[in-house]
Design a protein around this nucleic acid. Sequence first.
DNA 1: GTAGACCTTGCCCCTGACGTCAAGGCCAGA
DNA 2: TCTGGCCTTGACGTCAGGGGCAAGGTCTAC
Lengths: 160, 160
Amino acid sequence: MRIGELAERAGTTTRTLRYYESIGLLPARRTGNGYRAYDEDDLRLVRQIRTLQDFGFGLEETRPFVECLRSGHPDGDSCPASLEVYRRKLAELDDCIARLSDVRRQVGAQLARAEQARAALEAAATVPGGAPEPRCELTPYDPSYDPSASDVAAETTPRG
Amino acid sequence: MRIGELAERAGTTTRTLRYYESIGLLPARRTGNGYRAYDEDDLRLVRQIRTLQDFGFGLEETRPFVECLRSGHPDGDSCPASLEVYRRKLAELDDCIARLSDVRRQVGAQLARAEQARAALEAAATVPGGAPEPRCELTPYDPSYDPSASDVAAETTPRG
DNA sequence: GTAGACCTTGCCCCTGACGTCAAGGCCAGA
DNA sequence: TCTGGCCTTGACGTCAGGGGCAAGGTCTAC
């Protein structure tokens, strides 16, 4: 099949598939006229990649799974390198969740303190204020708390 | 004070302060020769920004706090807009933690399943007597796989 | 009067995962 | 033959938060 069909069947875009090829993740054979040619195995590779991406894996982290599938294994996680990525990802997730929980606690404490201070002020002088319009922009969570830690989970990017 | 001193006292760089000015977060007065001039209040603003950044706030999210300080309040979170940012951040954190926890659960399940499948395979392969020796950790086109992998004692990354 | 530290603006670079043109090639149907 | 759709490569933009360097201006100390 050609790139348009693969993109449609895999639920992605042609631009994405060309990008995968450009980083060596999904090489494509070519037909006589230069068009990319894919088969059902390539469709499975793309689906494996997208599944892992939904888990927040970066593209580089999907590489062992893709290689595993391409070498003939029935599942992308049948190989030790894939299991290692799983384990590293679990450790990253645990670390990330712990840090976020700590930040949540601190921000919650700051909010409580500031709200109490405001309540005290407003009790002193009752001043009606306008409702602050909340911005509806979705700001993604920032995993770069530690600049040397590889990041995880870009779930808030509208990809799906 | 000039930009170099402010950067040093705030624990950041001159480049960062110029960047803040370029996005309108920290405007600077100018001396006759064009140098940026800052005072102690600006130092407090920068420290407020850095504190919030340590919590994972984006620069845009620090803006209400900075403007609150600049309008004369003793704390950056004395204003309703700042409180609103706190609350939105808390909601984001809760959402993010929930999603990451769910992903963690799913990845953990995948790992357990894949490990069991491998154990079964190796048990079956050991009975005939050959070493399993899977060859899927080869990643031929990958000069630098994970430059920032911290620990986990990654032994299955040959990388060359 | 000059060395050297500090300042200015401006420009290109990086990450990740693509989106969005632009200019042109290939092919099937009317 | 024309039209329209799909394909190609290439280049630039995005978002955040700056890093790094160049060319040149300014100030201070010796």
